[in-house]
């Protein structure tokens, strides 16, 4: 990798100040998104600001009908959190099928969404549950957060501090793994909110990153069952086509994974 300077701030404010001083600096938590691209010399931040040990960014909280996971909480800690398992077990499940054990030991929820990688798992949960992304500046609704492939609403230097998920009535996640990378070839998160609203999001499928699936949402709202999706048609238009899956195949997977996410 190119030369860089490493910082380990002890607070969010200190991290933000370091970022403000250097427009080419990047935040780093687990590093499992950023370090691989730095190693390939595809990213060359002048400095990396390690937020992975800032106490205010680590932990899980449940308050009323809201599960809040702080940004630098590792996948490992999320999947083993009693609060997560109890309030939104689908998130614990999603985390348990994300990456591999060593990656889960380091990777963080903030890192999973900050990049809007089209094959990352967590964006599906964030969008399907209508979560709120909290930053050191503001709160951003999930609908407004994901702005297309590798693009989010985050401004330069803005730091995700936590993600708050409304606790749904029912939710599930099912994923077809990419045979090589083990990211989501297509993953679907289904959620029935406590107000009866149904939200479904698919990752790995769309050329624009994570997406809602209105056809499935309508069908599931009428009837929360796999059979309700039998006749739903998913258009392959705009879906990713590569050597691992055609757009038609991914369209099929959206439906099949949604059915399986129902449990």
């Amino acid at each position: 990798m190119y030369e860089t300077t490493y910082h380990r701030p002890s607070s969010v404010d200190e991290a933000a100040a370091l970022s403000a001083r250097d427009a080419e600096a990047k935040y780093l938590a687990g590093g499992h998104t950023l370090i691989p691209v730095m190693k390939q010399r595809l990213a060359s931040p002048t400095a990396v600001i390690d937020i992975g040990r800032i106490p205010a960014l680590i932990g899980v909280e449940v308050s009323g009908d809201m599960l809040t996971i702080k940004a630098a909480t590792t996948y490992f800690d999320i999947m083993n959190s009693a609060d997560v398992k109890k309030s939104i077990p689908a998130i614990a499940h999603l985390t348990s099928v994300l990456g591999d054990p060593q990656v889960r030991a380091r990777g963080t929820i903030g890192g999973s969404i900050a990049n809007n990688d089209p094959a990352a798992d967590f964006p599906a949960a964030v969008l399907a549950l209508g979560a709120t992304v909290k930053t050191n500046k503001r709160s951003i609704a999930a609908n407004d957060f994901f702005k297309g492939l590798f693009t989010t609403a985050l401004n330069d230097g803005e730091l995700i501090t936590a993600i708050s998920f409304p606790v749904p009535a029912k939710a599930g996640y099912s994923k077809m793994r990419h045979p090589a990378s083990r990211f989501a070839l297509t993953g679907v998160f289904v959620a029935q909110m406590k107000n009866g609203d149904v939200r479904v999001a698919a990752t790995g499928a769309s050329q624009n990153g994570v997406m809602r699936v209105p056809g499935i949402e309508t069908a599931l709202k009428a009837n929360w069952s796999a059979s309700a999706l039998e006749n739903v048609k998913i258009s392959p238009n705009g879906l990713i086509a590569d050597i691992h899956g055609s757009a038609e195949y991914r369209a099929n997977l959206i439906k099949v994974m949604a059915q399986r996410a129902l449990g």
Binding site: R8, L28, I35, K39, V103, A105
Partner: peptide, 29 residues
Amino acid sequence: CDTSQCGACTVHIDGRAVKSCTVLVGQAN
């Protein structure tokens, strides 16, 4: 490998298995 996948570099940091090819020395300090 250079994509954090093969695991040949696995060590324990503070008791947990991680890929040492994807950890900067500063992070491990």
